[in-house]
Design a protein around this nucleic acid. Structure first.
Lengths: 332, 332
DNA sequence: ATGAAAGCGCTAACAT
DNA sequence: ATGTTAGCGCTTTCAT
């Protein structure tokens, strides 16, 4: 009763053909007589045959699996990205192993090793700082990779223009009359952090102001709600003039910041305006609907997978600021 | 310059030993002289050797990968579940392939086939209706499976007591004076849908009331915010007395329902109380903080993986109602 | 302690 | 159109 896995050999035997013919039915059905094909297929069904992917890949040398490493699977932003990848991969009958680095370079390295051992067809990564070097190792193993949500001259990548995103957010806040703005940023070794800062600085300069007067940056080690809350506390408890607006690295960080504002009885956006990033699906439904910079994550994922499979180059995607109540107030 | 993957053979050659010895270094390092071990390890490092998981698995017959199929990776509830699984698997050096069935039995079947071909060590599933039969096929292939967030006498499973969850939610609403309650449910073929309904009915009966008077059920084909909104529209546009409270299948459905209430200018909880399910991390930060039934998803995932690996049985987990503003109003 | 060799299931090149 | 067979990289006896 413990029927083990049937192999091509078993199928061949039952169908009264050779293993080569079974393989042909599997891979080149047109080269097989209708009659024998049907017979083999019946044998397969009868034995509940599933081809052994390990053996197949060992022989063929290439797998139909792609590794995807995102910074945080708990963040809907990244699952949406994964969805886009999956859409594209499904078209070519590939599948995906999804890993969450949790922004931890060690975990990331661990996963890269695992994926290399699995012999994946390629790797798609939203990189942490130290990623790029390790991808060189992979490439030397013949495993291509694509950076997502990031830009690199050394590696293929699909990117979003984070400079533009930062510029849009800060321009908007400046337009609303803010002159002291807190940037709740990620770690500085994250490209997104730096690019958005650059955009922020550009926006301030374009308004004829001095960035060092206007911008205050707090770098958070993790992009969680708790960290966002902690970052805001740190900034508010600091002596000196308090900021009147917050630009958060993502909506989850913004969520934490807004929580703290509520705890302190500060009104959003009158006492403090807030702009997030990613425009997650619940942004519009928060206690104060959250302004946010929307990114086309699904398309981005699609493009990344397409780039891996076909090497068609893709252009840089553009983010778009969505203004909602959390920043919709013009300071006198 | 196109250095291909190094194999044990290459390592053996460089180290001047046999492949068997290399394998021993990998799998039984204690059976090898310190001196040769070091030499082999150096050779590995020099060649950037990664063992080929396909070959390894083909030979060994078992893989260190576990398949996980959840209903919707976009829902943080399920990614939290996946985190729990991963926690447990990492302890035994296993990894996970994460798949999202999107509540589509066809997709689910597709993934099960894929996982079988990959020869995964086991499969963990949050099942749709038709799952259980297909798991029989897997078992016949020697691949064990564990149902999560569900209960079955035919399969190993780790469950949450959804009857209790439904009972807690409805008892609370009855306590608040509600006598016409809308249950925005999932498809009836989902066990969770049925169990929570049973709990709801028990609660109504325990209050000495007639369930058919009190409860109105709308089954949603998909558990999305848009469906939740649509379901509420359907119920509100229905002639006859409108409900005064909504019990939603999950927080995302609740989100959609609350959106529609806002569109209509109805006040939560005065005009309509809302209770969700899962207690997602943003539930407390919504426009009206959402009451919700919290489930210990991370522990559940941990238990599921533990069950697969060790066959230690686990008890049924208990949900807990968290009351917030969305239902915190006693009707006169 | 180390080496030699068989074989896991499959594919593809070659033979019939 | 179908059969035969070598070999992918690894682990695991069995010798030495």
């Amino acid at each position: 009763m413990t029927a083990q896995r049937a192999s091509v050999k078993d199928v061949a035997q039952l169908a009264g053909v050779s293993v080569g013919t079974v393989s042909n039915v599997l891979n080149r059905p047109e080269s097989v007589t209708e009659k024998t094909r049907v017979r083999v297929e019946q044998a397969m069904a009868q034995l509940n045959f599933h081809r052994n992917a390990s053996a197949r890949q060992l022989r063929a040398g290439v797998s139909r699996t792609v590794g995807v490493i995102v910074m945080d699977v708990g963040n809907p932003y990244y699952t949406e990205l994964a969805r886009g990848i999956e859409d594209r991969l499904a078209d070519d009958d590939h599948t995906l192993i999804l890993c969450s680095s949790d922004e931890d370079p060690q975990r990331e390295a661990q996963f890269l090793r695992l994926l290399a051992e699995q012999g994946v067809r390629g790797v798609l990564v939203t990189p942490t700082a130290s990623t790029t070097q390790r991808l060189g190792d992979l490439r030397r193993l013949g495993i291509p990779s694509v950076l997502m949500d990031s830009h690199s001259t050394q590696h293929t990548s699909v990117g979003v223009d984070h400079v533009s995103g930062g510029r849009q957010a800060i321009s908007h806040l400046l337009d609303q009359g803010h002159r002291r703005i807190l940037y709740l940023a990620g770690p500085t070794d994250l490209q997104q952090t730096r690019h958005r800062l650059r955009g922020a600085i550009e926006a301030v300069q374009a308004a004829g102001l001095d960035p060092t007067d206007v911008l205050r940056v707090v770098n958070l080690p993790n992009l969680t709600a708790n960290e966002g809350q902690r970052g805001l506390i740190e900034a508010l408890d600091d002596p000196g003039p308090a900021p009147t607006a917050v630009f958060a690295m993502n909506d989850i960080v913004a969520l934490g910041a807004m929580r703290e504002l509520r705890v302190r009885g500060l009104s959003i956006p009158r006492d403090m305006a807030v702009v997030g990033y990613d425009d997650l699906y619940f942004a519009a439904e928060l206690m104060t609907p959250l302004s946010s910079v929307r990114q086309p994550m699904r398309q981005l994922g699609w493009a990344a997978a397409d780039l891996l499979l076909t090497e068609h180059p893709h252009t840089v995607f553009q983010p778009e600021l969505i203004v909602r109540a959390s920043s919709d107030f013009r300071r006198p």
